[in-house]
Amino acid sequence: MAIDLNGRTAIVTGAGGGLGRSHALALARHGAKVVVNDLASAACEAVAREIQEDGGEALPWTCSVTDRAAVFAMVEEVVARWGGVDILVNNAGILRDRTFAKMDLDDFALVLDVHLMGSVNLTKAAWPHMRDKGYGRVIFTTSSSGLYGNFGQSNYGAAKMALVGLMQTLALEGQKSGIHVNCLAPSAATQMTEGLYSEDDLRGLSTDLVSPGVVALASENAPTRTILLAGAGAFEQAHVTMTQGVHIGDAPGAAERIEAQWERIRDREGEFVPASGAAQYSHEVNTSSHLADRTFAGATNET
């Protein structure tokens, strides 16, 4: 059954080109009214015009996601014009790649400001409207650089992993209000990736192959607390998991015993995805006796 976004309003940041443009066009093709946000007015207007010429409704809006007042004004205008905001695609971003040793801290802060605080600004502006409506779909753009690391991208990776943490909490807070919050980790050839990868690496990584994931995450049947990976037409899910671990306690030599049991601590058999941050504490308290018995029994054979 086709996903129908008629009657839904979406805001897509960084939508003047690349992934954002593809996301905006895909959402519009499925019936959503789309706010095309970017820094360049000409680019915003061009994408909005594409949507309109294809029979859709679009509003270009030029501002930086770091400009909190402008972002709030954008949301208020959208609510006044179209009656609400249903879908947020936090896509705007920049790169300032260097090794951590050589990186200027202003560049570190700037990347955090655009990716993390830019997403916070838009989501904060729209959140009360979504709560009042009892419906919302929020998509943050994370990255494999945040999930798994990438040389020379400490600022970018930190910002992108911070968005996963934001998603985890907002998904819990939004659940009772019908607000689903997810992350997308895209692999695509964009202006941001120019010079980072070879032509062979980027061949087939069209931005249009990622956007179906955004449409699915924007739909009524979207999951929540999901990290969707997408690229070259393939889709996967990433998880932040917790192993069963071992119980060390406060016996003398605890640090040395941890060092001796790294393999058992990292053993992924029986790993699970905690329902919330409190689940770590609950697991450690509730299973400590069992793990203590298992660990100390095993310790008797250690040399």
Rank of each mutant, 00 (worst) to 15 (best):
L170D: 02
L170E: 08
L170V: 05
A171M: 03
A171C: 03
A171E: 01
L172P: 02
L172K: 09
E173F: 10
G174F: 11
Q175Y: 11
S177N: 14
G178M: 08
I179Y: 11
H180F: 11
H180E: 07
V181Y: 00
V181T: 08
C183I: 01
C183R: 00
C183P: 03
C183A: 09
L184S: 01
L184R: 00
A185V: 01
P186M: 03
S187F: 00
S187P: 00
A188M: 09
A188D: 04
A189F: 07
A189N: 14
A189W: 07
T190D: 08
T190F: 07
Q191T: 14
Q191Y: 13
Q191A: 15
M192G: 09
E194L: 15
E194R: 15
G195M: 15
E199G: 15
D200I: 12
D200S: 13
D200K: 14
D201R: 11
D201M: 13
D201V: 14
L202S: 11
G204P: 06
G204H: 07
S206R: 13
T207M: 00
T207C: 06
D208P: 09
D208A: 14
V210F: 01
V210N: 01
P212C: 02
G213T: 07
G213I: 02
L217Y: 07
L217C: 07
L217S: 08
A218W: 11
N221Y: 04
A222H: 09
P223Q: 04
P223C: 04
P223S: 04
T224L: 06
T226L: 10
T226W: 05
I227P: 00
I227F: 00
I227L: 04
L228I: 04
L229W: 00
L229Y: 00
L229E: 04
L229S: 03
G231P: 03
G231Q: 01
A232H: 11
A232P: 09
G233T: 10
G233Q: 09
A234F: 11
F235A: 02
F235Q: 06
F235L: 04
E236M: 10
Q237G: 02
A238H: 03
T241G: 04
T243P: 10
Q244R: 13
G245N: 09
V246G: 02
H247F: 15
I248N: 03
I248G: 01
G249S: 11
G249I: 12
D250Q: 14
P252T: 11
P252Y: 05
G253H: 10
A254N: 07
A255S: 13
A255N: 13
A255L: 14
A255F: 14
E256V: 05
I258S: 06
I258K: 08
